[in-house]
C-alpha cells in the first residue's frame, strides 16, 4: 500500500511544509481497522493483521540491515502490514506473515533506478492468490455503507495535497467510472448498475491507497495518466471478459513493469517521501 524511502542513498535535507502523507495514511488505515473491529465487519481479523504487521516490520529490519541502510524507517512496513490485514483473507494465519515477507522483500529485491517496481502489498496479494489456494480477497465485504464516509476522508487527504500523487487516483477513478458507464450504455443497462459498481469500498481503497502509492507510480503526470488508463482498461478486460477477480490487483501488478518504460519515455523528477520537493537526483 505504501512505498518506502529510497534505499542506500543520502537523504536530502528535510523540509516539511506539508505533513508526511504516510501519517495521514496511517490515520486512515487505523480508522478503517477500528471500524472493522468495532462497527462494520469487513472481514479483517486481529491475529492475521498482527501477523502481517509483525512480518512486514521484521522483514524491513532484516532487509534494511542487509542493505546497509543508515536509517530505519518503520512507517512504510507498518502501513503495508495494516493494508494486508485489511485486504487479504486466508484460512491460516501464517499466510499473512508470508504476505508481509513477500511485500517487503519485493520492495528490496525488485527495483529499477532506485525505485521498487511493485506496490508491496498489491504484489504480495497477487503472488499469494496465484501461488496458494488458501487466500482470497473479499471485495464485496466493504459494502456500500462506508462509501461516503471513506470518500470524504480520502478526499480530505487529496485536498490536503499531502499525497502528491493524488492525480493518479483521480485519473484512475475517472477512467474506471467512464469504462463502466460506457459498458452500461453499450449493454443498455440502467445507470443503477454502474453506480452500484462504483459505490464499492474496495474500489476506493484500491484507488486511494494502492494505485496512488507515490513510490510505485510513474514520475511524470502524463505517465501517471497513461498508467491509470491502462490499469482501468486491463482491469475491465480481466473482470468482464476473463471473469478474473480481483481484477484491479491483477491489472495493477501486471502493468507495474510498464512504469519503467513510461519513466524512460517521459522523464520527470522522482518522488521521495522525505522531501516534498521532488528530487531529480539519480537513485
Amino acid at each position: 500500500m505504501s512505498g518506502e524511502a529510497a534505499i542506500g542513498q543520502q537523504m536530502p535535507p528535510r523540509r516539511r511544509p506539508v505533513p508526511d502523507p504516510r501519517h495521514l495514511q496511517m490515520v486512515a488505515l487505523i480508522s478503517l481497522l477500528a471500524v472493522n473491529f468495532w462497527m462494520i465487519d469487513f472481514g479483517a481479523r486481529p491475529a492475521p493483521t498482527l501477523a502481517a504487521i509483525g512480518a512486514s516490520l521484521l522483514t524491513q529490519i532484516v532487509c534494511a540491515s542487509l542493505a546497509g541502510l543508515q536509517q530505519l524507517d518503520l512507517r512504510s512496513p507498518f502501513l503495508t502490514g495494516m493494508s494486508l490485514g485489511l485486504l487479504l483473507r486466508a484460512d491460516v494465519v501464517w499466510l499473512h506473515a508470508a504476505a508481509g515477507v513477500i511485500a517487503i522483500g519485493s520492495k528490496f529485491l525488485i527495483r529499477h533506478r532506485g525505485k521498487h517496481v511493485f506496490n508491496p502489498s498489491g504484489f504480495a496479494i497477487v503472488v499469494l492468490l496465484l501461488a496458494s489456494s488458501h487466500v482470497w480477497v473479499s471485495p464485496g465485504q466493504w459494502g456500500t455503507e462506508i462509501w461516503f464516509a471513506a470518500l470524504t476522508a480520502l478526499l480530505a487527504i487529496v485536498v490536503l495535497g499531502a499525497a502528491r500523487r493524488a492525480d493518479i487516483a483521480i485519473f484512475f477513478f475517472v477512467s474506471h467510472a467512464a469504462l463502466l458507464l460506457v459498458r452500461a450504455w453499450w449493454l443498455g443497462d440502467p445507470m443503477a448498475i454502474p453506480l452500484h459498481q462504483l459505490q464499492s469500498g474496495s474500489l476506493l481503497i484500491f484507488t486511494f491507497f494502492m494505485i496512488s502509492d507515490p513510490r510505485t507510480t510513474p514520475d511524470s503526470m502524463c505517465g501517471r495518466l497513461l498508467f491509470a488508463i491502462a490499469v482501468a482498461l486491463l482491469a475491465h478486460y480481466l473482470a468482464f471478459f476473463m471473469q478474473m477477480r480481483p481484477a484491479l490487483y491483477f491489472a495493477l501488478i501486471a502493468l507495474s513493469p510498464a512504469m519503467i518504460l513510461l519513466d524512460r519515455m517521459i522523464p520527470a523528477p522522482q518522488f521521495t517521501w522525505n522531501d516534498p520537493a521532488p528530487q531529480g537526483a539519480p537513485k
Binding site: R89, A90, D91, S133, H134, V135, W136, I193, H196, R245
Partner: peptide, 18 residues
Amino acid sequence: DAVSFPEDIVFLETSDRN
C-alpha cells in the same frame, strides 16, 4: 428487488471452512 440488487450476484469460492 431491482433497486437493491441492480446487477446479478457474482460469487467467489473462499477457502474458509469455519
